[in-house]
Amino acid sequence: MPASSHPPSPASPLEDDNLLPQILLRLPPDPSSLPRASLACTRWRNHVADPGFRRRFRLHHRRNPPLLGFFDGCGSLDFMPTLEAPDRVAPERFSLQRDEGDGVCRPLGSRHGLMLIIVPKRLQVLVWDPFTGDQHRLDVPPGLTTNGWDERLINGAVLRAAAGDSEHFQVVLVAADGGQENRRAVACVYSSETGAWGGFITTPLPNHGHASSLFSRYSTSVYMDHAVLAGDSLYWQLIGNFQGILQFDLERQMLDVMPVPVPIYSKGNCFKLMRAKGGGGGIGFLFMSNSNYIAQLWSRKTDADGVASWVIGRSIELDKLLSLRSGKENIRIVGFAEDNNVVLMDMLRGFFMIQLDSMQFKKLARPKAAVSCCHAFESVYAASSTYILR
């Protein structure tokens, strides 16, 4: 009998066990994926329950984490879920355990499954993992709150130290000098690997800005909104008598300042930093006017001579997209999810999420309290058992 006529030999349990983790690794990064897989059979449950597998699952999907929801950025830290059941994370699942005497805590932003929170009363920042509840408290480095700075003018960002490192993290704190002389921005970096803050990194601040700004008579400060990570740099908005963008290059450990072609804050306008379209590593922003409901997506381009300039890449007619009544809606951009390219807008009819690539939108329930700033929580939940899903 020819060899080809023999039936194939069944795979050995060892071969199946080697192949199964690779299959499970490719499940979608939805919160319900691994809990559901663990219910299939004992063998699947054993693989999913392995801490090493869960770590690889998080790393495999790190570049496309789902948008689980938004945290209120005004101090309450209430969580607003964005997914539907069975992937919806109940708000009570993410509850920060505060120490007595912490007082009001203000979130500065989240990234890579971690939330950065400032505790003004203690002059500390808190790195919080909402899934595990783990907390790391860091004293704000001495000197960051001198020369007119105080805790209200400090902003920052948290990120994992490296793509394959799920244990260590970095914190970058920034502030802008409020004085009229020796005007500068300053940054300081903490590494959990060394357990120490580095030295201060500074850059001068210009003395001019858009005269039409609501804040032009105030000293320059780093706006309370979260940072955007684009390429190897973090970016924050600067407001006051200079309006622009503060850039911190993570690789070169350098600060830089760039102007913007529009007034960041003027009556009836909204401004939100985001990654440039296409994900090529550059920074962009969305500028919107309530007078005509047109949102412009700008990006930073560099020509052949190395000269950088801002260009409008796209305009979105929000009145047509959302069926707005002319002059009847006051729209505010209150949040942005950098990995999913989603903006969160506050309108009279509720909160709307708009996916800027597909232009699909979804309405969310309006929070009970007024919200002026929200921080997106984009992360891969890699638990082996079902948690609070409704």
Score class of each variant (00 low, 15 high):
R98Y: 02
Y190K: 01
S191Y: 10
D249I: 06
A175G: 14
G156H: 03
G231P: 03
L348G: 14
P259D: 15
P204Y: 02
V260Q: 03
G280L: 09
R314S: 08
S213A: 09
F352D: 02
R106W: 12
V307R: 12
A162T: 12
I264V: 15
M288H: 07
A11N: 07
R106N: 07
M347G: 03
S33M: 01
L126D: 01
D16I: 14
S166M: 08
M224E: 15
H168S: 09
D177V: 02
P51N: 09
K267G: 01
H60R: 09
F336H: 12
L68C: 06
A382Y: 01
N18P: 00
P86T: 04
Q296G: 06
L322E: 12
A90I: 11
V125K: 03
V307M: 12
G335E: 05
P86L: 03
A304D: 15
S32F: 05
I283Q: 00
I312W: 04
A370W: 07
T132W: 09
Q97C: 13
S315T: 15
E378H: 05
P142D: 15
M288Y: 07
Y190P: 05
L246F: 01
R58M: 12
I201T: 10
D99R: 15
A369D: 14
S166C: 13
L173S: 02
N207F: 08
P130W: 02
A175V: 14
L273E: 03
K362V: 03
F169L: 04
V257T: 11
A227R: 04
F169V: 11
F352V: 15
L24A: 03
D357K: 04
F79S: 08
A365D: 13
N182P: 02
G313L: 11
L159N: 10
F352N: 01
P8W: 15
M254R: 12
D78N: 14
V371G: 01
W44G: 05
M345F: 03
Y223N: 08
G240K: 02
H136G: 00
K362E: 13
S95G: 08
A382D: 08
N330S: 14
R349F: 05
L389V: 11
V222G: 00
N64W: 01
M345W: 04
V343H: 11
D256T: 08
T145A: 13
R111D: 05
F94K: 08
A304Y: 12
L116R: 07
Q135F: 04
D305T: 10
A308Q: 10
A163I: 13
G209L: 10
Y223A: 13
G280P: 07
D177Y: 12
E251D: 04
V172C: 08
K267Y: 13
D139Q: 15
W197H: 09
M345Q: 01
Y387D: 05
P142E: 14
N155W: 03
V127F: 13
R106T: 15
R152I: 06
T203W: 01
R55K: 13
S385P: 00
G103F: 06
R62K: 11
Y387W: 10
L83V: 09
R332M: 05
Q253S: 08
P141V: 07
R36E: 00
H208K: 09
P51A: 03
I354Q: 00
N330Y: 11
A382G: 05
R26I: 04
P21V: 09
R111F: 10
L389Q: 01
P367L: 05
P141M: 08
